[in-house]
Amino acid sequence: MNNQKTIIFAEDTMHIAQLLKFKLEKEGFTLIHFATGEGVTEGVINFKPDLVLLDIMMPVKDGLTVLKEIKSNPSIANIPVVLLTANAHEEYVVKGLQLGAIDYILKPFASAELVLRIKNILKMR
C-alpha cells in the first residue's frame, strides 16, 4: 500500500513553488502544483489530496475563492487547507480562518517551519 501523502499547492511565484516542491518531496510528499487558483478545486476533487496549501493572492482566482469552493463541496470539505500569504495581507487571514482554513503561514516564512507545520497537521488527522 502506498502511504505517501499528497499535497496540492497553489502558488504563483514560480521559484518559491519550486523550492516548496523540492523541500516537501524530500520529506516524502507527492506534490501537485497549480500556478494560479484556476483548476485547483477540480484538482482537489480529482486527486483527493491529504492537504491543500493555498496562496491567497493569485491571478485568475484568489485563494479565498478557492477555499470557499472547497469548503462548500461536501466531498472535499474535510480536507485541511493551509493558507500562505504576505505579511501585508494579514487581514485576509481572519477571513480565511472563518471560511474553514486550518492554519496560515505568513510570508516571509522559513521553509523548515512550513514543512513542520504541514507534518503536524497531517499527524493530528
Binding site: 511565484t13 521559484h15 516571509p108 516564512f109 517551519e113
Partner: peptide, 15 residues
Amino acid sequence: HYLREFLLMLKGDDF
C-alpha cells in the same frame, strides 16, 4: 535576479 524572490519571501535559516 534569481535570488530576489527568495530574499523577499524567506526568513530564518533560509534567508
